[in-house]
């Protein structure tokens, strides 16, 4: 879908002029990342007069279609989730405005946070040595903040995916993984063994469903020399078991090659867990962490297969997606190692 920056700039200025009742100027518009499912642009905005007058450093996200998991949020719901997070003192880019129709597609303007997001750099670069010491505890404390948001008060059941009452979060996830594997159509005995193990070791449901970020890990956080700046990528938000978020940043695939350090390739998870426990006044159960590490590995393996299908079906021809079909075996080996003899 070819779209020139000039075309986008004009459309954006027209909408913002109407919304702010002021003269506006969009400058330095450039594409940061773009695929068939989403585009990310960087831009500077100045509003000449009125309540919102001033200069803004922004990113524009534009949704084009295509999803990795069936229950990923659309941009409108993701924007709502970000507003709730912002109001709950979670560090994230301020969600400035949602535009339901920008050249035929939904879009959102968010404040631009300076910092690094690329996992490999956060794990390796000398610049982030101090940040690596602080990040685990900062991320643990921040996750506790997300998990204690009052789901009922924000009516989050109305717009976030959640397990039906008769299912525990784990069983609901397993059910979806089974259906998803059937849709993929290719047999994966290693993942089936993982799923059987998950059935047979299912933990009791948590007392309450909590709000989960859904993709909480190095790679989805903005980091500077002092550590955590903000949390990105809220599209997999849903209600479920807190251990799902707690174990996700520990997955081998999120260690960016630095496998010995279980928390994102930067540390052992002790500081992360301790900070979470302190902030949420709970004691974590290592057996549950292990269970959700297995579940999350199966989930990400299925996610890779889905991405490969987006390429294979012609929905979104993309070499990187195609290559994920062959990376699934890495996660299969991890699942087998995690459940072997247990």
């Amino acid at each position: 879908m070819p779209l020139s920056p000039a075309e986008l700039q004009t459309a954006l200025e027209n909408q913002l002029r109407a919304l702010t009742q002021s003269e506006v100027r969009v400058e330095n518009l450039r594409l940061l990342a773009g695929g068939a499912s989403q585009q990310l642009w960087s831009l500077d905005l100045s509003v000449a007069s009125g309540e919102t007058s001033g200069n803004y450093r922004l990113v524009l996200r534009r949704q084009l279609g295509g999803k990795i998991y069936r229950d990923a949020l659309d941009l409108e719901r993701e924007f709502r989730v970000m507003q709730i997070a912002y109001a709950s003192d979670v560090s994230l880019p301020y969600p400035q405005i949602f535009l339901p129709d920008l050249l035929g597609r939904p879009a959102a303007l968010l404040h631009r946070k300076e910092g690094e997001t690329i996992g490999r750099r956060i794990v390796r670069d000398a610049t982030f040595e101090n940040a690596r010491k602080r990040l685990p505890a900062q991320m643990g404390e921040m996750l506790a903040r997300i998990h204690r948001v009052n789901v009922e008060r924000h009516n989050m059941r109305l717009f976030l995916p959640h397990p039906p009452v008769e299912y525990s979060p784990a069983r609901w996830e397993i059910k979806q993984l089974e259906h998803n594997l059937e849709d993929v159509g290719e047999p994966h005995p290693a993942l089936e063994l993982g799923i059987r193990w998950l059935h047979r070791n299912e933990p009791p449901a948590p007392k309450n469903l909590v709000w989960l970020h859904g993709d909480y890990r190095i790679g989805n956080v903005v980091v500077n020399q002092d550590g955590l700046v903000s949390i990105l990528d809220w599209e997999f938000s849903h209600l479920g078991d807190p251990y799902q978020d707690l174990s996700w940043p520990l997955l081998r695939d999120w260690r960016f090659g630095n496998d010995a350090l279980q928390f994102g390739g930067i540390a052992q998870p002790d500081d992360f867990f301790a900070a979470y426990e302190r902030a949420s006044n709970t004691t974590l159960d290592p057996a549950r962490v292990h269970y959700w590490i297995v579940l999350n590995n199966v989930r990400w393996a299925v996610g890779m297969l889905n991405q490969a299908r987006r390429h294979l079906s012609g929905e979104e021809p993309n070499l990187e997606f195609a290559s994920l079909g062959r990376r699934c075996a890495e996660l299969e080996l991890e699942v087998l190692r995690l459940i072997e003899g247990r």
Partner: peptide, 21 residues
Amino acid sequence: VFAHVKQTVIEKLQVANPKYL
């Protein structure tokens, strides 16, 4: 079954990513 499946995954990785293996 477990032994066969693990061996098969290892063989897939010999093709897909021997360094990871």
